[in-house]
Design a protein around this nucleic acid. Structure first.
Length: 559
RNA sequence: UGGGGCGUAGCCAAGCGGUAAGGCAACGGGUUUUGAUCCCGUGAUGCGCAGGUUCGAAUCCUGCCGCCCCAGCCA
């Protein structure tokens, strides 16, 4: 199989179970409820469940936990399927729904009644809550707890037939109202809901609760290891109780791990939805959203997401991962894969006074500095160019080795130029730089070995292609927005900046879904929704590491 | 003040009685026509705290402290 030592405690358990012969093949499942979009936290679960079977030639089910009609929608199941596929995993023919098992689940429930360990309770929801007790006080038995098997069976069958209204009765497990574990104080198994289900229509008016449906679905599918997050840890005794009572052919084992929390983000579906409702973002796939759909639209590579969760590890400790880890995974992947192009985000006009008017030279530019096999492209060079406003400083510090009055800088893949004159408008704003170029310094010509400290990017003005470029930043200003009273107050007002950029011509044909590096700026990709040949729209995936920004920050500790 | 978990560097994380891996970040230095990439180097006499067992403890025992989860007919 594989000789690599297990990476985490779950793989350790699986390895041991394979070694001991307890299981010949591993079977896991990823069981989302289709009531929202998948987010970073789910990426961890998906990679774990599918990863573990990929490594051991096992099988993984994609099972929709659709036991609560009304909250679940078809839109979400399609989005979830797309997200799991995009991440690079395949469930083949193992796409299931908890609703596929409604009939078997019902039969199991009757069995529980026959065994005398389940009963129909006729208390109201409020009364049940009152009877449950508190964390420190035991609960009290329901007056309906000792109904006979026959009466329970009759009532339950009539519940199914639709003889009762919502909330009139509920099927409960008969365990222990005094258990210190609240989950064992006669948990509800079935509730009446006269509502159509997205898949079973009006076939049912009673629906199973999570604990029951999930445990038995695992058993029906022959799941060997049921991996879930920490908050279900004290549901495990209940999970095992169902298995003990019903003794299914397969006995799955539930193992819990801690969820992955990303700093400066929230993953609560309720809060994510609130952001959409408040128009803070444009939807579930807004590039600032921590949803898989949002990250995909932003341009994050699936390979980077997988690498990211791998670096985070699988443990039982609560974690809040720094953004830097995610960004590192993205940069590492894109640094290797993305071709390089030039684009100017905040243009400043440069006129080369000694360059012939109307002349256009084609400069050869490497598509990837470390991968010559990716070839070159031609860049038009002319008398009027755009450079980045940030690459010029009228009063520059010693360490600033870009363009300054009287200073020289290399234009990447072009010539070395010198700034001779700064042109300003009536308000003192710099509107143009008049420079001269050194004809002996053409890139690659070898006619000059002159060196200058700085190299900046540029785009020839006449051939420049205009584009809208969306610059994203973190959505929140605090590391753990979920800990803030009103998370809306922690929003970053500058999470999106839109600029009108000037691109080199080749960028007009940038294929969708393929990230590109704008040299010296970062990684970008075409927006899957708003981009068109007529109106180019790019999203910034992530900036490049910027040690100059760090130097500036240290120089002026304020702001 | 019931029950269940978790505490190793700023953030993650190995470690499974034999003397603290690795990654990210940070900080120094080198290469560089991207202040990118790449390459070198730097961090715990210390593993939540206090005792104990042992020749030897992050690993075993006891006690304490801190943080997270649980009182849906949600998942």
């Amino acid at each position: 199989m594989n000789d690599m030592p297990p990476r985490d405690f779950i793989r350790q358990i699986i390895h041991d179970d394979l070694q001991s012969g307890k299981h010949a093949t591993i079977v896991t499942r990823f069981p989302p409820e289709p009531n929202g979009y998948l987010h970073v936290g789910h990426v961890m679960s998906i990679c774990l469940n599918f990863g573990v079977t990929e490594e051991t030639s096992g099988k993984t089910f994609l099972r929709f936990d659709d036991t609560n009609p009304g909250k679940e929608r078809e839109e979400f199941v399609r989005a979830i399927e797309r997200d799991v596929h995009w991440l690079g995993f395949d469930w083949e023919d193992r796409l299931t729904h908890a609703s596929d098992y409604f009939e078997q689940l019902y039969a199991s429930a009757e069995r529980l009644i026959e065994l005398g360990v389940a009963y129909v309770d006729s208390l109201t929801a409020d009364e049940i809550r009152e009877h449950r007790g508190t964390l420190t006080e035991p609960g009290r038995n329901s007056p309906y707890r000792d109904r006979s098997v026959a009466e329970n069976l009759d009532l339950f069958r009539r519940m199914r037939k639709g003889d009762f209204a919502d909330g009139e009765h509920v099927l409960r497990a008969k365990i222990d109202m005094a258990s210190p574990n609240m989950n064992l104080r006669d948990p509800a198994l079935y509730r009446i809901r006269h509502i159509n289900h997205q898949r079973t229509g009006s076939d049912w008016c009673i629906y199973p609760m999570y604990d029951f449906a999930h445990t038995m679905s695992d058993a029906f599918e022959g799941i060997t290891h049921s991996l879930c997050t920490l908050e279900f840890e004290d549901h495990r005794p209940l999970y095992d109780w169902f298995l003990d009572q019903l003794e299914p052919a397969h006995r799955p084992r539930q193992i819990e791990f801690s969820r992955l929390n990303l700093a400066y983000t929230i993953t609560s579906k309720r809060k994510l939805n609130a952001l959409i409702e408040a128009d803070v973002v444009t939807g579930w796939d807004d590039p600032r959203m921590p949803t898989i759909a949002g990250m995909r639209r932003r341009g994050y590579p699936a390979a980077a997401m997988r690498d990211f969760v791998k670096r985070c590890g699988v443990t039982k400790k609560d974690k809040l991962i720094e953004m830097g880890v995610l960004e590192n995974s993205i940069r590492e992947e894109l640094g290797e894969q993305a071709q390089r192009r030039m684009a100017v985000l905040r243009p400043l006009k440069v006129v080369l006074t000694n360059y012939p008017e109307n002349q256009v030279e084609m400069m050869s530019a490497l598509n990837h500095p470390n991968r010559p096999e990716l070839g070159t492209r031609e860049l038009p060079f002319s008398r009027e160019l755009w450079i980045e406003q940030d690459d010029f400083m009228e009063e520059a510090p010693r360490k600033f080795f870009r363009l300054k009055p009287g200073g020289e800088v290399r234009l990447r893949f072009g010539y070395i130029i010198r700034c001779d004159e700064v042109v300003k408008d009536g308000d003192g704003q710099i509107i143009e730089l008049r420079c001269s170029y050194d004809p002996d310094t053409r890139s690659g010509s070898g006619t000059s070995d002159r060196k200058v400290k700085g190299t900046i990017h540029w785009v020839s003005a006449a051939q420049a292609v205009p584009a809208e470029v969306r610059l994203y930043d973190r959505l929140f200003t605090v590391p753990d927005p979920s800990a803030v009273e009103d998370f809306m107050t922690a929003l970053n007002p500058d999470s999106l900046q839109v600029v009108e950029a000037k691109l080199e011509p080749a960028l007009a044909e940038q294929p969708a879904g393929e990230a590109v590096q704008f040299e010296r700026l970062g990684y970008f990709s075409v927006d899957s929704e708003d981009h068109s040949i007529e109106a180019l729209v790019f999203n910034r995936i992530v900036t490049l590491r910027d040690s100059w920004a760090k130097i500036e920050r240290q120089a002026m500790p304020a702001s």
